[in-house]
């Protein structure tokens, strides 16, 4: 990733936050719908949660050697 890639991404993210504050009127009555940058948090924390959770599940329980079923 080059520097300008990061700058562009940051600009897009900040632009979406500004747009959210200026033009999005939350009409939903759920408490979480009023969190600023809700979808950014969901994306970032959700991504990390999926990676860590899946890997933990795999290491502790689900992952086996590639030849696990060879004797079937």
């Amino acid at each position: 990733m080059k520097r300008w890639h990061w700058i562009s991404l940051a600009a897009v993210m900040i632009g979406s936050l500004i747009l959210e504050r200026a033009a999005v009127h939350h009409t939903s009555d759920y408490w979480w719908s009023h969190i600023p940058g809700l979808y950014g948090w969901l994306g970032f924390l959700g991504c990390i949660g999926i990676i860590v959770g899946s890997k933990l599940l795999g290491r502790k329980w689900l992952q086996r050697g590639e030849h696990y079923y060879d004797g079937e």
Partner: peptide
Amino acid sequence: SIQLLAATFFG
């Protein structure tokens, strides 16, 4: 969509 996708990329 933009927030969700950009933040996923950071993660």
